Simulated scan of single mutants.
Amino acid sequence: MPTPTKGPRLGGSPAHQRLILANLAQSLFEHGKITTTEAKARRLRPYAEQLITKAKLDTVANRRLVVKVIRDKSVLHTLFTEIGPAMATRPGGYTRITKIGPRKGDNAPMAVIEIVEAQEFGAQNQAPKKKAATAAPVEETPAEETVTDEVVADETATSDPDVVSEPDAEETLDTEAPATDEPASDEPAKEESSDKE
């Protein structure tokens, strides 16, 4: 017979405590962070971290062990495809407990338990993902734009031979601009001014 935990149990009976922890773990994996009492958060932390450790290696045996606790298939899928691989390089410490003020009704000490870097797991009520914010902006090359403009001009020219297309304003400006014979640098201009003196 397993030895019961010392001290008062959450919910009164071992079966009820097991269900409370399973529901808290499922909510934690679904939302990324939850607000609960400090006692429940402290009891949930090792329980959830054992499940994440099993989810790091996606095998049939590990899935069967975790499905005993996490009954929702979408949460189970999230745990094995997103949370587990994201924690593959971490040796432990997957969750963080932050104490907040007491609850208004009964003055119970409250805490927020969250998965470390929970923004990466696509939580619905979370801020945008950190990876998307830190990614470098994609630079557009002007060479691609000119190629597409030439392709469009070629298509319009070959599509209907009866229609005469007028050149664009930019093309007319480029062709009509007179060539200037200005010196490339300021040094020859300075030499001419020094000769005049």
Score class of each variant (00 low, 15 high):
Thr98Tyr: 03
Ala25Asp: 03
Asn125Asp: 10
Thr5Pro: 08
Gly92Asp: 11
Asp162Tyr: 02
Leu10Val: 04
Arg71Pro: 02
Gln119Ala: 08
Pro128Phe: 13
Thr35Phe: 09
Leu51Gln: 06
Thr89Met: 08
Pro109Gly: 00
Ala41Ser: 06
Arg43Ser: 11
His31Thr: 00
Arg90Phe: 03
Ile100Pro: 06
Glu145Phe: 12
Ala157Gly: 08
Gln126Tyr: 10
Glu191Pro: 03
Thr141Arg: 14
Pro109Ser: 12
Thr81Tyr: 03
Ala153Thr: 11
Asp174Lys: 15
Lys131Gln: 10
Ile70His: 06
Ile34Asn: 07
Gly92Asn: 07
Leu76Ser: 09
Ile20Val: 13
Ala15Asp: 14
Gln26Lys: 02
Gly92Met: 10
Ser193Asn: 07
Ala111Arg: 01
Thr156Ala: 14
Arg63Asn: 08
Gln26Thr: 10
Thr53Phe: 06
Arg43His: 05
Pro183Gly: 00
Ala22Ser: 15
Val151His: 13
Met110Gly: 02
Lys40Cys: 00
Gly101Trp: 04
Thr37Ala: 10
Ala25Phe: 05
Lys33Phe: 14
Leu21Tyr: 03
Lys6Asn: 09
Ala55Phe: 01
Tyr47Leu: 08
Leu28Val: 02
Ala169Met: 11
Ala169Leu: 15
Ile97Arg: 04
Gly12Met: 06
Val116His: 11
Gly32Phe: 00
Lys129Ala: 11
Glu197Trp: 12
Ala48Asp: 10
Ala132His: 07
Leu24Thr: 00
Thr156Val: 09
Ala86Gln: 12
Ala132Gly: 01
Leu44Glu: 04
Thr141Phe: 09
Arg42Thr: 05
Ala127Ser: 11
Pro4Asn: 06
Ala41His: 01
Glu197Gly: 04
Gln119Gly: 03
Ala88His: 13
Asp162Asn: 10
His16Arg: 15
Glu171Arg: 07
Arg64Thr: 00
Ala133Asp: 11
Thr5Gln: 13
Ile34Thr: 09
Glu150Pro: 02
Lys73Phe: 02
Pro167Tyr: 02
Ile97Tyr: 06
Ala39His: 13
Asp72Thr: 06
Tyr94Lys: 14
Asp162His: 05
Ala184Pro: 00
Glu49Leu: 10
Thr156Pro: 05
Ala179Glu: 15
Lys130Phe: 00
Lys40Met: 08
Gln26Trp: 05
Asp195His: 12
Ala184Asn: 12
Pro102Gln: 11
Gly11Phe: 14
Asp154His: 09
Ala118Leu: 05
Glu155Gln: 13
Ser165Ala: 12
Met110Trp: 04
Asn62Glu: 10
Lys131His: 07
Gly84Met: 04
Gly101Asn: 13
Thr158Ile: 09
Leu173Arg: 12
Glu150Ala: 13
Val60Trp: 11
Thr156Arg: 06
Arg45Thr: 00
Thr35Gly: 06
Val66Gln: 07
Gln50Ala: 06
Ala15Val: 11
Arg90Trp: 13
